[in-house]
């Protein structure tokens, strides 16, 4: 199984020389911004959650939205995960709420790569930790539209491109796992993922585990395992 080097930093910038994590990652990890302190006393306009504790990452996002401008006034969050996951959610909350707040349309377009760049880069095998925050945000935005009756604006996730060369999405990986491919080799046999874009392999491995867990747990509930 190919293992990536810990020193491969993606989105590398001047601040990420030497240490495993950039100074910005450390700042957001040790001093997280906007995390949800009082869930019970908070009235959110929209909320979303993604991930599973078995996979090692869970993110929950709460947003407050200005109904006139549809800009995000506040973005609160909670994250179960490693330093990159915590720092990425923290940075995301800053990015969508700073300078008067992002419009919901703009926030929906926020990419993990943009968060990663603002963090001064992440080690290659940590990228998968940063890709759930924006999903949780989009779930919260959909929730807001649902609550305000704007159901036509709800966007179902079309799948996120994992392999940039072959344009393979996380949905393709999910399909492959559902069809019984439970190792990287087997998923590659079905999708060729990573053959043109090897940088995505650590993320693909994480996705395979994620979906395996998801469907294994369903099997367990069925009593078939």
């Amino acid at each position: 199984m190919p293992k990536s080097q810990a020193s491969d930093v993606v989105g590398k910038s001047a601040s990420n020389q030497g240490g495993f994590y950039s100074d910005t990652v450390k700042e957001h990890f040790f001093h997280p911004k906007n995390f949800m302190e009082d869930e019970a006393g908070y009235e959110a306009d929209g909320t979303g959650m993604v991930g599973s504790p078995a996979c090692g990452d869970v993110m929950r996002v709460w947003i407050k939205v200005d109904p006139k401008t549809e800009r995000i006034l506040e973005c609160k969050w909670k994250t179960f995960g490693c330093a990159s996951a915590i720092a990425a959610t923290s940075m995301m909350s800053v990015m969508v709420s700073e300078n008067g707040g992002m419009t919901l349309d703009a926030a929906r377009e926020l990419k993990p790569q943009q968060i990663m760049e603002r963090l001064g880069g992440l080690p290659a095998r940590k990228i998968h930790c940063s890709v759930l925050g924006d999903k949780a945000l989009r779930a919260a935005i959909n929730d807001y539209y649902r609550k305000t009756g704007q159901t036509e604006k709800i966007e179902i996730e079309q799948g996120r491109i994992v392999d940039k060369v072959l344009k393979i999405t996380d949905h393709d990986i999910e399909e492959a796992v559902l069809e019984g491919a439970d190792t990287l080799e087997k998923v590659q046999a079905k999708t060729k993922v990573g053959t043109g874009d090897p940088a995505c392999i650590p993320e693909v491995e994480q996705l395979i585990r994620f979906y395996k867990e998801k469907y294994c747990e369903m099997q367990k509930e069925d009593g078939s395992q």
Partner: peptide, 26 residues
């Protein structure tokens, strides 16, 4: 890994069995 890094910042060096700390993501 998160707990390990908080300890590291306080000068305590330990290790973790978390997936995030391994190269295999397991």
């Amino acid at each position: 890994e998160a707990a390990m890094l908080y300890l590291d910042a306080k000068g305590v060096y330990c290790s973790t069995g978390s997936a995030c700390a391994s190269t295999a993501l397991e």
